[in-house]
Amino acid sequence: MSDQLIYATEVILNGLMAGVLYALVALGFVLIYKASGIFNYAQGVMALFAAMTLVGIMNGQVPFAHLINATFGVHVTHFGWTIPALLAILLTMGVMILLAWAVQQFVMRHLVGQEPIILFMATIGLAYFLEGVADLMWGSEIKTLDVGLPQGLNVWIDDTTYGIFGYGFFIDNLDIVATVIAALLVAALVAFSQYTKQGRAMRAVADDHQAALSVGISLNFIWVLVWSVAGFVALVAGIMWGTKSGVQFSLSLIALKALPVLMLGGFTSIPGAIVGGLIIGVGEKLFEFAVGPLVGGATENWFAYVLALIFLVFRPQGLFGEKIIERV
């Protein structure tokens, strides 16, 4: 194999891994969109919120410490204990479920039957709100998140590929773990929606709200459930991205990265989110590798959007989306 080809292969592999992470975020969007027709812009901020809460709980930070200190003139920062990662994850999941309930109770319930674009804008408002709350609760400084996932160069792959090609591939352990977890998550979600009662109810709601209501499914409960599941996906995504690049504001911007993934894959399809993520991941890495140096680099900022834009002109519903039928 020529050098260029080997480099390109490594780029593609890394792109696939990045794509899995994009797909993980996109998955949260698809879940909510399918069940309630809401395009949840706040998904990225939910991931940030989950990651910050996880770090905060693990370190035993006092929530709203900054605000309490400013209001009462005291000086508290930490409870003085640390909590093991697994327990902290469970606690964070509890917070996310609470959040799901609050969103349903205070926001979405009052917006039933509004136009989709109004709902979309409401989730933008929610994103701002959550971001502010997360910053107030846990402080806005960059935090490191370590729940014990392996990180760094995978030596085995490096050695093996060196033995075969004479060039070691650089692949992060974390990316491999993320891939495995994403695969498990998708399998679990599919199993959940196919084989459990709640999962079936969820699909029924996605299919037709009124029909679901008339056979006795509680829409309220299903929506809380869907937002909780989305919160869980956000938590997983938050852990992955947070471990990779630190828990900070830019984490919430992965929501924007997930948008072109969704457009490629179609808003309503779980496999679409995965395939779309992989295409975007590989596409932007390859484009940066091949064309980036010619035009000044950092093409990753826009490549995904432009690819999705061009793609949509030819297939407006995405790869796996349901055919859009419009009637007057």
Partner: peptide, 16 residues
């Protein structure tokens, strides 16, 4: 941070 919270809440309140 409060500003973020207030702007977000206001948008939601307005839409509702």
């Amino acid at each position: 941070h409060l500003q973020l919270v207030i702007v977000g809440a206001l948008i939601i309140v307005f839409l509702i």
